[in-house]
Amino acid sequence: MPTVDVRRAMRVTAGLALGGLSAFAEAVFVIVATLALAVPAARPAVFGATRWFAERDRSRLRRYLDYPTSDDYRDSRALRYLGTRSVVGGLGAGIFVLIALGVAAAGIMVWQLISGHPLGGGDPIGEDQDWYDAPGLLLIGVLLVFLAVQGLIGVVALERRLAHHFFGPTKQERLQRRVDALTHSRAEVVEAVNDERRRIERDLHDGVQQRIVSLGMLLGRARRAKDPERAEALLRQAHEETQLALQELRDVAWRVYPIALDEGGLGTALEALAERSSLPVGLSYALDERVDPATETVAYFVASEAVTNAIKHAAASRIDIAVGRTGRMLTVTISDDGVGGARPDGNGLSGLARRVGAADGVFTVDSPAGGPTVVRAELPCA
């Protein structure tokens, strides 16, 4: 363990030495760049060089000082960083110069002691020189070494604070990005709700409504029939149409919101989805406990819509659903062995992407030509 600490100390010292050397070049560059910014045509080149210097310094911080930083920063902030860091680097270079002078002075004094010459050019040892001069100088040397080490440690702390402050977006920029993300998420919520309304209206219009219209026509024909047997046959057809209409109405209600989500949670709802599917559906459910209802709802509808799309368009023979959790993220993966070629910007998948985006999740589709198709949603959950 001590060997590791010594190596790390040597690596950090080397990084500070490199930073001290580069500080002079950075100081000259900052002066020239500040003057050059007065010429609009020179700004792209100035900011390009600024980023080059900043990236070199980020690499030094990461390699020698074990301090990785973000590359999400503006060029103007990088220029301010270089100007401030050149001062800190110059301070580190000054400490190294003092250390070098101290080592040279200590070497001279050691040579004077060995050769019998007077310390500091004074009286020879043993004549009028005080006996405590050598121990006193040794204590002063130890104190100076301690101060130099503390100075280097302070420079390391300043380097890291500067990097933390200048590299990456500012607090205001992060706040603005969050506001933009929330605005976009709100628009996605509205669009997802509108898509859901349109889907429900389409299901009612194309399914249940047509069944009820057919039922009304059959009942009307039965009322007008003169032949009792004919009337009986029409009433029997009307009864069958009633059963079909009820079944389609149940299907629409299930797609709007399956009651199994409230009663048994996501696992129960997905089991019911697999049982109702016209294709074999394998389910792998690896959650030990339920997540929040909002996340369960989004996860269910992602699985339901993906299964529906696979049945309608993928020409698949099997569908698999896998649900798991990694930390605070719930993952839902739906895969099929169909022909592939699913378009993420299609009506069904784009609606799922908006629904997942509204929940601050990540939605991906991998569907090469020839298959297989893998739809994956990652949702934050409490």
Rank of each mutant, 00 (worst) to 15 (best):
P2A: 15
P2K: 05
R7Y: 11
A9Q: 13
V12N: 00
A14D: 08
G15S: 13
L16N: 02
L18Q: 13
S22A: 06
A25Y: 05
A25T: 12
I31W: 15
L35C: 10
A36E: 02
L37K: 08
A38P: 09
R43N: 02
F47W: 01
A49I: 08
R51F: 00
R63S: 04
D66V: 13
Y67F: 13
T69W: 09
T69H: 11
S70I: 03
R74K: 11
L79D: 02
R80W: 07
T84P: 01
V87E: 04
A93C: 07
L98F: 15
A100D: 10
G102S: 15
A106S: 05
M109W: 05
V110E: 10
I114S: 14
I114E: 11
H117V: 14
G122A: 07
Q129D: 05
W131Y: 11
L137N: 10
I140K: 06
I140Y: 09
I140N: 09
G141D: 09
V149E: 06
G151V: 01
G154R: 11
V155W: 03
A157S: 04
E159C: 03
E159L: 02
L162H: 01
H164G: 08
H165S: 12
Q176W: 05
R178V: 08
R178S: 13
R178M: 12
A181V: 04
T183M: 13
D195C: 07
R197H: 13
I200Y: 10
E201N: 14
R202W: 09
H205S: 07
V208E: 01
V208D: 00
Q210V: 15
I212M: 10
L215I: 09
M217Q: 11
L219N: 07
G220R: 11
R223E: 14
A225I: 05
K226S: 10
D227Q: 06
E229N: 11
R230T: 11
A231D: 01
Q247S: 13
L249P: 00
L249C: 08
V256I: 08
Y257F: 07
L261Y: 04
L266T: 00
L266P: 04
A269T: 01
E271D: 13
A272Y: 06
L279A: 08
V281R: 02
G282I: 01
D288L: 07
E289K: 10
D292W: 10
A303S: 12
A303M: 14
S304N: 08
V307K: 04
A314W: 00
S317K: 05
I319N: 06
D320V: 04
I321Y: 09
A322M: 05
G324M: 07
G324P: 09
R325K: 14
V332H: 02
S335F: 01
G340N: 00
G346F: 08
L349V: 14
S350D: 15
R354Y: 09
R355W: 06
A358P: 03
D360S: 12
D360L: 07
T364M: 02
A369T: 00
G370V: 08
G371V: 03
T373G: 09
T373E: 10
A382L: 10
